[in-house]
């Protein structure tokens, strides 16, 4: 009896998960379809580009510079155990560009942008602003969702590129400032070691993570419950979902780019 109950609970949870995946997929497809069909809301896209891209630069820059610096210190001290201190430039470059740059930028965007989008749209829903948009002949998917998702798809890869450069610079600053590396040879080693595929994978991950972050914010906002509690739950759920999906997508994309 207990086994049947446990199996029943597992079955219900599995069905609920599959249903949620289906709803999110349909929502994302709807957002994409609204991106390519008029009318287009240029002002909303510009505001989203500013909020997601430009205003995220400080947090992305600070995260990248400290991570790059810490990575250089770790590799130097760890490499010293088997006399491999000289690989600091190469490992910082590959670590930042292939992995840490996109993932950390993605997680920062999930924390900063996904939460903000979810809270804003959920508040609009609770205060009937979404209903008001509909009665004013404006499709909320087109006016609220499509510009935010499109802006994230455009701008998060650029943020990742900026994060990669700043992260490498963080490693460079520590390596040349306190670990005794020659600046010119550090930069040469970095540039020589990186391959186009490394940069391409970084930008592709940025695009995917940006899409996930904005879509989760919009989805949870549009499906928010009532009241302050509903807004809180939507915000929390959006960040959790975005962070987990970003990490899962990172694993899949890393496999696609480097293992196949």
């Amino acid at each position: 009896m207990a086994l049947l109950q446990a199996l029943g609970a597992l079955g219900r949870a599995t069905l609920a998960l599959l249903a949620a995946i289906g709803r999110v997929t349909l929502f994302a497809l709807s957002a994409v379809s609204h991106m390519v069909r008029p009318p287009f809301y240029g002002r909303e896209l510009a505001v989203a580009l500013l909020n997601i891209g430009w205003l995220s630069l400080p947090v992305v820059g600070l995260t990248a510079v400290f991570t790059g610096a810490a990575l250089a210190l770790q590799i130097y001290s760890g490499g010293a155990r088997f006399s491999a201190e000289a690989v600091v430039p190469q490992i910082v470059a590959i670590g930042m560009v292939r992995e840490l740059g996109p993932v950390l930028v993605g997680l920062m965007i999930a924390a900063r942008v996904t939460s903000s989008i979810a809270a804003e749209i959920a508040t609009m829903k609770v205060t009937e602003q979404i209903d008001a948009l509909t009665t004013l002949s404006t499709n909320p998917m087109k006016y609220l969702v499509a510009p935010r998702v499109l802006a994230a798809l455009i701008v998060v890869p650029l943020l990742v590129a900026v994060g990669d450069v700043i992260g490498v610079f963080g490693g460079f600053a520590v390596a040349t400032g306190s670990l005794g590396f020659n600046p010119a040879s550090y930069l040469k080693n970095t540039v020589d070691f990186l391959e186009p595929l490394d940069v391409l994978s970084s930008l592709a991950k940025g695009c995917a993570f940006g899409g996930i972050a904005a879509t989760m914010g919009c989805y949870f906002g549009m499906n928010s419950g009532r009241g302050a509690q509903g807004v809180g739950r939507a915000t929390k759920g959006s960040v959790e979902a975005a962070a987990i999906l970003i990490l899962a997508a990172n694993f899949v994309l890393t496999g696609v780019f480097f293992s196949l």
Partner: peptide, 26 residues
């Protein structure tokens, strides 16, 4: 929908837009 106007209970004004753009939204 173009034939309808609606006054919502809480106003449902768009916080991010100034008053005149709320009124002239349509």
């Amino acid at each position: 929908l173009a034939r309808f106007g609606m006054l919502f209970q809480g106003g449902a004004l768009f916080d991010s837009l100034p008053v005149w753009q709320n009124v002239a939204f349509r």
